[in-house]
């Protein structure tokens, strides 16, 4: 039962990743793209955790934790860049 459920949920999360990628591609504003990236990384954490459950391995959590931290830092950096508007002030 659990394997089937894991499969179904993985497909759902995969579909969500595709939808986010659509938003990433069509924009229209930079803020939309940053938001899409932010959601993409959160969804990828879900996918990694699901994979970890599927293969019954602990290794995946380390990468999920790393993605969570780096994702937040990169979103913050992108938003800060957008606020200043320019790299060189």
């Amino acid at each position: 039962m659990l394997t089937t459920v894991l499969m179904i949920v993985s497909v759902m999360v995969g579909l969500a990743l595709v939808l986010n990628t659509i938003r990433l591609l069509i924009g229209p504003s930079t803020a939309d793209r940053i938001l899409a990236l932010d959601t993409l990384y959160i969804n990828s954490i879900a996918l990694i955790v699901l994979l970890g459950l599927y293969f019954a391995s602990d290794m995946y959590f380390e990468s999920a934790l790393l993605i969570a931290m780096l994702g937040f830092v990169s979103t913050a950096a992108l938003a800060k860049y957008m606020l200043r508007g320019d790299i060189i002030e």
């Binding site: 459920v5 949920v9 759902m12 939808l19 938001l35 899409a36 959601t39 879900a46």
Partner: peptide
């Protein structure tokens, strides 16, 4: 399993909202 499915549905709805 129920929790997993609920989580999947919410993530999907969130992505749907994005589009």
């Amino acid at each position: 399993s129920f929790l997993l499915l609920t989580g999947g549905v919410f993530i999907l709805i969130g992505a749907l909202g994005m589009v």
